[in-house]
Amino acid sequence: MRILWPLIMKVMKNYTSRNSFGLFLRAFFVAFLILPACGNKSLFDCAGPKSTVPCNPRSRDEDARIALDKGDLQTAIEILETLIAEEPTKYDRFPLLSAALAGRSGFDIFNIVKANFGSSSSLLQVMGEFLPTPTSKGAGYDNSLADMKRSVAVLNDIPLELRNDISASSFASSCALQLTLYQAAYSIMLINKYSYSSSGFDPSKLSSMTAEDAALILKNLLGAANSGSSSTETSAAVNTAYESIKSQPGSTDQEKIASYVQANKK
């Protein structure tokens, strides 16, 4: 560079001052001087620290995609909620929002990899391994529960003909599986609400279960078993849990669920 610098200066002096193409040269050098301002983003990224050229804005769907890939579920949820409110019949965004809400509730889809629904363990034992509890979430457990409830509700907002397995929509198959997983997870999380305290498993809380929540638990389990999911192992495990609860001793749904929990906890 030491050798070239005098040459650069000489030529720049000779040509940039008098040649009409000097504008091009100067513009080029200025462009390179300001390039470092773009930091670790594309120079054309509108979210960059210092936009020096007309940027190329991303669509909000793309912003949601980036947030999901980064695991920034809060941002993804906010964007998707806005988009759905603006275009309530564009149903392909619903499964994404549902998945993000489930993720924010503490449901990690990759934990399903570890789950073995075909084993002799009950649904409560299998899903209880990784679902959040009042012990793990503390005061935030109600928020987790609300997120999972909304996750299920968002999927149920999709017209039935678009989310069954034989429909032609691109998300039908995955939507059915999501419904199975999230409804089952919601049921278990409701059970956890009444069987865990901040210090750990606490079956004494089961007696406080309301009739409404007991009905919700059974309704979601039944819905999960009949969602039309192609995952027969998962559906069968949910159905077994539902039948097992219904066969437990007790005169009310609360008592049956409490018996099921007592029988299936380690």
């Binding site: 999901l68 695991g71 994404l96 998945a99 990759f110």
Partner: peptide, 10 residues
């Protein structure tokens, strides 16, 4: 591998 694919599942 996307944890949240186009249809919400991996």
């Amino acid at each position: 591998v996307r944890k949240y694919g186009d249809t919400g599942l991996p």
